[in-house]
């Protein structure tokens, strides 16, 4: 019980399967934990294995693959059966996975099935003596909890919390056979919403807009800046409740909690429930015409000005700066 098992998610595009962005972060955290435990780092990949391979990347010693239909999407039952089979084979001290939609659901479900400790959506994990410990934001980040587990644990790691490190090594690989799982949930259809988007919680840069935009037809100011920066775009609750933007874009305590490297808040005053959802961002830039807006209390850079004037300037500057 000193190995660490990773569940790594893959995405499927025209070029075949690729690891999702948080996989390297999860592997980096897993490597550090495996070293502390004196054990191996074993990665489970279900469905199509990325063609460029993950063997040896990010400190993985051994790869378990589970092939077959039904792993391409985010269906809980087959993924849970595969993870439980891998747990039975490896008998790890900890399972690490990304705190994604699937990762949170799968981690909780399998922890429930196994009676293991769950540490959900943590920003760090470590070994303290013979206990696993983790730091976990509560109240949408208004407080940080220290969690501890004496026994085995499943840990989901918040995207962007751990910088990924390269750590190539010789690794072995093995196919795992998993019995057919429960088929009480079946995929009917996948509806793509235009272009495939990066999950907001996994983006490096987010440009968010609020009421200060004035009207939904001004939203182009946000998407233009996001495009210039290669960023995802988000929205405040006020804008979502007003029907300007879809729920999936809402950042805040009743939306998504994000911690990108760079968060640019445009025309957002900074209601406490919005601040809770984004104040763990590494760097925060705020644009607001009200110098007293609460958003400036958490901002690293503040621009007091009207978004209608400032955003075109910033977009133009970003266009020339990032290509220079």
């Amino acid at each position: 019980m000193s190995d660490v098992l990773l569940f790594l998610e893959t995405a499927h595009g025209e070029a075949g399967a690729t690891l999702k962005k948080p996989a390297a972060e999860v592997a980096t955290a897993g490597r550090a934990l495996a070293d502390a435990l004196g054990g191996r780092l074993v990665a489970l990949i279900t469905g199509d294995v990325p063609a460029d391979g993950i063997l040896g990347l990010h400190g993985v010693d051994h790869v378990l693959t589970v092939s077959g239909d039904g792993y391409g999407r985010h269906m809980l039952a087959p993924q849970a059966a595969a993870l439980e089979a891998a747990v039975a084979s490896v008998r790890p001290r900890a399972v690490l996975l990304a705190a994604s939609v699937l990762g949170k659901e799968l981690g909780a479900y399998v922890a429930g099935r196994l009676g293991w400790s769950l540490m959900s959506d943590v920003i760090s994990v470590a070994l303290d003596g013979d206990r696993l410990t983790a730091t976990k934001p509560k109240y949408a980040g208004k407080a940080l909890a220290r969690l501890a587990a004496a026994g085995p644990a499943i840990v989901s790691l918040r995207p962007n919390a751990v910088p990924p490190a390269e750590n190539a090594r010789d690794a072995t690989s093995e196919a795992l056979v998993v019995a057919a799982s429960d088929a009480r949930v079946r995929l009917r259809e996948v509806v793509a919403a235009g272009e495939k988007k990066l999950e907001l919680t996994e983006a490096d840069t987010i440009v968010s807009g609020g009421r200060g935009l004035g009207a939904p037809e001004n939203w182009g100011l946000i998407t233009d800046l996001a495009h210039a920066l290669g960023a995802a775009h988000g929205a405040s609750r006020a804008v979502v409740d007003a029907g300007w933007r879809p729920h999936a874009e809402q950042v805040g305590q009743t939306g998504k909690t994000v911690s990108p490297k760079l968060y640019i808040a445009c025309g957002i005053s900074g209601a406490i429930q919005h601040l809770a959802g984004m104040s763990s961002s590494k760097v925060i830039v705020a644009v607001n015409k009200d110098a007293e807006a609460p958003i400036f209390k958490v901002a690293d850079y503040g621009i007091v000005g009207d978004v209608h004037d400032v955003l075109p300037l910033l977009t133009a500057a970003a266009g020339t700066f990032l290509t220079s």
Binding site: M75, V185, R186, E189, A192, E195
Partner: peptide, 14 residues
Amino acid sequence: EREIDGETEILEVD
């Protein structure tokens, strides 16, 4: 229905 990575998955559940 649930949304993942900008796509909506439609699932049938017993």
